[in-house]
Write a protein that binds this DNA or RNA. Structure first.
Lengths: 255, 255
DNA sequence: CGCAACATTGAGGGCCCTCAAGAGGTGTGG
DNA sequence: CCACACCTCTTGAGGGCCCTCAATGTTGCG
């Protein structure tokens, strides 16, 4: 008998998102403008600055289930996500990757590594068909000399990453699982409406991905959500979470 | 009777370090050159770039036990440590602060917040008499327009922070306490001598600070060190750790 | 209808924290 | 000089938090 080990691992989306959170197939932007202003935040860039970035930009598409890049890969360029969803994490190739962060376009995938002449420190896995833009490090450095104001924007982008990561380290070392979940929910509430005492959140990702980002297991997340429901702090219906008592969340988060 | 609440809290070093790790009183540099090259790494800066930074630099001294800055303070400037030791962490004023990171001069204390027009996200507590240099954000931005190459150096500094924090988040969410300790020791060995199978480390900080940075308690750290000793992977004598088996450390760290 | 993926719930156990006591080292005041 | 206070580290006992494993329910798809 011809025993051929033919288990070719077909690249495919690693997960099936429930209908409720499945992202609508976002139309790929084919019009001229790349979303620099969204990536770099206000104030708006000058036309000259946008043109400079456009000239350097190199587009690439990645199929769902493939990696945009892998940890350890040389990182010669800044990488930003133009369309689609990407999970950042680390895992052996072929094996399931544990998501440490989930990004929806538009967003930077790696705005730092290129400056160190180093390697990406995480894997980036396309969850949907994905389009990314890359800005080669060397030409980018030259562009900064012509357009020095761009540098401040990139510094701000990196500084934001530092702030986010610092907060995450603090949460992981100083807060237990209930406090981390309360903090995560509270942050989302504030982002929706800074003053309201109640708000409604729609979860845009699988609960197991949320758990993974919070450094806990899906089982623990489920139990904690149940506990918050029992305390009447939230009401959970599938992927819709109604927050009934925002101050209680802040209290539970320890702040 | 005149009951005067006279318990003035005298600012003093919050801890007593054992002689073995107590830093030698480093002479304050009063000579002209500020250590920009050490802070920003190779290649060396041009004389013009150094002069530009010198012009913006504003020195400040902080007594042992005082805060260089507190979390939530407005951060109008980049802050670097010129001499002394500083513990970064978060804690109520007056209360004991849990160290999340310990820095020895020269090093950046906060190279990011100023770009966000935001606030420091951690407290910085002087453990020894400390001298810091501050570079105001606005003038700094102007300097970058005159000296665009400086921007790349600052981007690299921030990118390094991002890489370090990303690794720390990964360790905290994906490794248990023994693996984190093994990884920490292994990293120090590699920094000392990349190829050797054994090396000797001198701990430059209290073990409780090491534990705090690794997200565990001093008791757990002590037990783990004992366990590694029993396995003949390391030998501990006070603040001297002799690593007998570097590959075993790498294995225990899960990589 | 069967299958696959995700979420939920329960039982059990291991890791690590908390609390407490004691040893060793360092600075202070008598 | 020496007793004492203070800080740190170590070691042990106990317990709680959260992970692991397993079974079941739900939803979407072929």
């Amino acid at each position: 008998m011809n025993t051929v080990i033919a288990s070719v691992v077909v690249a495919r989306p690693p997960c099936r998102l429930p209908q409720a959170v499945r992202p609508l197939a976002a139309p790929i932007r084919n019009d001229a403008g790349l979303p620099w202003n969204t990536l770099l935040g206000p104030p708006a860039l000058s036309a000259q600055e946008c043109a400079g970035l456009d000239r350097l930009a190199s587009l690439r598409t990645v199929a769902a289930g493939d990696r945009v890049f892998a940890h350890g890969d040389a990182a010669p360029a800044l990488v930003a996500l133009l369309s689609g969803d990407v999970a950042m994490g680390r895992g052996a190739p072929g094996a399931a990757m544990r998501t440490e962060r989930l990004l929806h376009a538009p967003a930077w995938l790696d705005v730092g590594s290129a400056w160190l002449a180093g390697a990406h420190s995480l894997d980036a896995l396309a969850l949907t068909p994905v389009q990314v833009v890359e800005l080669a490090g060397g030409p980018m450095q030259a562009l900064l000399e012509a357009q020095p104001r761009l540098a401040a924007r990139l510094l701000a982008a990196l500084a934001g990453e530092v702030r986010r990561l610092t907060a995450q380290v603090h949460a992981l070392t100083r807060q237990d699982a209930p406090a981390r979940l309360a903090g995560w929910l509270h942050e989302r509430c504030v982002a929706t409406d800074a003053r309201a005492d109640r708000c409604v959140l729609r979860l845009a990702e699988r609960k197991s991905d949320i758990a993974s980002q919070l450094g806990m297991t899906p089982e623990t997340l489920s139990r904690l959500m149940r506990a918050l429901s029992d305390q009447r702090v939230i009401e959970v219906d599938g992927y819709t979470v109604a927050v009934l008592d925002v101050p209680a969340l802040r209290r539970l988060a320890g702040g």
